[in-house]
Amino acid sequence: MLRVRGLSKRFGGFVSNADIDLDIEPGEIHAVIGPNGAGKTTLVNVIAGDLRADAGEILLDGHDVTTLPTHRRARAGMGRMFQITSVLPSFTALENVAIAAQARGRSFRFWHRANADRDLNQRAEMSLARVGLSHQASALAGEMGHGEHRQLEIAMALVAEPCLLLLDEPTSGMSGADSVALIDLLRTISETTAILLVEHDMDVVFSLADRITVLASGRRIACGTPPEVRADALVQQVYLGAGATAAPAMAEHA
């Protein structure tokens, strides 16, 4: 579904991504982990098109999207959930999702009230129901809680029926119960959609991911199934050597 080859990104003299390869198969949940500053968020931004790659190529479903702007990649089937909540605060939850659905259709319509567009509203309602947010459909997004924002963002991404979903730390700032619900949801979603997941929480990573790519200092140091990665000497060294918070979690799963 997604195929990344030799991807590099520099900021001045600082190399954030160096020669990274990444493959995501249809229906796969692929996690990208690594210590702080490993270049995970940069990688997501380059794949999404917010940043332009200095070298390398990105293929989405066989099509080269390396030089396409963000909105064209979105139309080609990339859904997105940001690290920091990003909704439209002055619209209701339903409208947020309807606007996301509308992106796939015609938006150059100037007279009829968009709110009365049954087709869009129906699709939005279904998507809200899927993430369990139907009861908040008419609430203003700006007045919803953090956990609900994360659900709403997923509903917005799902309604466009993406072939690839980019999730940057979806469970950050969520309560335990909320993240459990979210993990269940992601598991169902992955039946129809490939997922690229950047995540700090090792519990989430090891319970969800089919495969894991490990980044350190902008380079890929390992890639494989969770047991393979867990057993990888270099990965252990990076995590233990960095004395990172993730080390205990890593050991726990080992």
Binding site: A48, D50, A74, F82, S86, L88, S107, R109, F110, H112
Partner: peptide, 21 residues
């Protein structure tokens, strides 16, 4: 209208609207 709410959406959160397509 459909156009209008996209315009307002872009005003409120341009990056999000880009990522929606």
């Amino acid at each position: 209208s459909h156009f209008g709410r996209v315009l307002v959406g872009i005003r409120d959160n341009e990056r999000r609207m880009r990522s929606l397509g």
